[in-house]
Structures are given as structure tokens and as C-alpha cells.
Amino acid sequence: MIRYIAGRFLQVVPVLFGVSIVVFLLVRLIPGDPSVAVLGSRATPELVARVRDQLGLDLPLWQQYLNYLSHALRGDFGISFFYQANVWDVTIVRLPITLALMAMTVLISVIIAVPFAFISAVRRGQLPDHAVRIAFTIALGMPVFWSGIMLAYLLGVKWRLLPIAGPGHGGVDTLVHLLLPSLTIAIAIAPIVVRTLRSSLIEVLGSDFVTTGRAMGLKPRFLTLNYVLRNSLRPVVTVISINFGYLIGGTVIAEQIFSLAGVGSLLIGSIGTRDYAVIQLATLIFALLVVLVNLAADVIYMVLDPRMALAR
């Protein structure tokens, strides 16, 4: 098992290298001279020369990459021209709210998905099953920015149930403020969870140990919670980790719609200010999150079920 986990860690290394190359190459996509693009209307020949020198644009490409990498490993991602501050400092302070939003989204998605997946699995092929499937297919088709605006209108403005914008004042207040954004993203994530949970519930409900448990006269609620649900939730961990990039996409949109100062809204905001170094770092952080979450999911899976190591 330890060998498997070590091997899994080693697999991540080339991916991380590749990710850093892509992020480095991003600025190469800027049409024309990147230093002119960075400076915009402030560009004078002297300033351009200084920025070119600072960005190392006159070096060969591979050397530029090595420079980028060695600086990045020391946490130096350059200076934000808009914030006049270290890019790392500007970005990293916004990570907690992004992570909180993601965690809450996962929680709400599962809370929404469990009852509906149960109804679907128990009444398989019947009207409730079809109704659930159609409802969640529609939910999957709703663009996050649209459902966010609609929810803010209904829950925030019309019925005045939830605060619509901003991060609140810390603690419980912040959690309450995160409810609407995470509900918005959860509407896009829950359909994926429902689909997976439904099929794993069907499998578990039909398995021998559930039949045995029923025959032994276990209370239905005890059986459901301790046997059925616990064994059905594992594929949910997998499906959420596989779709983590999709979850991040939702987070970026929701942060922007609901004025949350996270990494996602920083990414969107930095496009208008042409803060390319910030765009690079935000992109890098999101890719790292995907890689880490998938790694963590695999390792957790392994610890929960050591048979997996032998199977591979």
C-alpha cells in the first residue's frame, strides 16, 4: 500500500511540471510584445525596456521557463501592476474564502442529492425516478451565472431569505453569506452526484448483506444509515474528485456574481486590468487544487479499501 501511495505521488510530478509549463506559456499567447501589453497606455520606450528586462523576455525560452520555475518555487510570482504588490500576497489571502465556498458547495450538493437519489433508487423505473431524473437534467443545463442571478432574485430580493452579496462579517455571518453562492454551484454539481449515488444505491440495496440485514430484522433506519448509505457514498467521493475542475468553474462564476473576494473573482477581475501575472497564478492555484484533490481522493480511497492497491 505504501508503495502504491508513493507511486501515486511520483505520478503527480510530471503533471506538475507540465502544469507549470502551460502556465508559463500562457503569457506567450498575448499578441504582440507582452511588456507593451502589460504597460498598456503607460508604455514608453524606457518603461518597455525595463519591463522586458524584468520579465526576462530577451532570454531564450527555456531559460525564461527555468527562471519562472525557480522564482515560482520560492513563492515569487512577480509584481502585480494593478495592486502594486507581490502577486503571491495578493492572491493567497483570497484562497480561504474560495476553499470555504467549495467545501460548503460539496456539503450542500450531497445534502440535496441523498434524498432524491434514494427516491430514485427505491422507485426505480417508476414515476418518481423519471421525475427526479428530468428535474436534475434540467438543473445540469442551467448555466451557473444564470441560476445565481435567479436565486439571488427569488431568495434574496423577493422572499428576503438570504443575503445576496459580499462575504459577511466573519464566523456564522460569513457562512450565511456563503449559502446562496454555494447553493447556486450545488445546483450544477448535485445532478452529477445524484446520478452516481442512484446507481450505487441500486447496487448496494440489491446486495446480499442488505438482504441479510433485513432478514435479521434490523430497523430500517439503522440499516439505511449504517449499511446502505455508508457503502453507497464511496463512489460519490470519486465522482466529486473527478468533477472537481467543474466545481472550480462554478466557484469562479459564483464568486464574481456574488461579489466574494476569492481567487476566482480575482482571476476575472485581473483580465480587465491586464494583470497577467495574477491570471497566471490564479490559474496555477486552481490546477494545483485539482491535482491535490485527485491525489487525496485516491489515497483516502486506498486507506479505506486496501484491496484497491492490489487491483492496480
Binding site: 503533471v15 502551460v22 500562457l26 468553474g249 476575472i268 490559474t283 485539482v290
Partner: peptide
């Protein structure tokens, strides 16, 4: 490894 939407946004941003 990149979230789909994030990479599309980053590329269009550039």
C-alpha cells in the same frame, strides 16, 4: 489537470 472553464478564461484573457 486544469479546470475547463479556468483554462478557457485564462487563454481568452491572454
Amino acid at each position: 489537470a486544469f479546470p475547463f472553464l479556468v483554462l478557457v478564461i485564462a487563454i481568452v484573457a491572454m
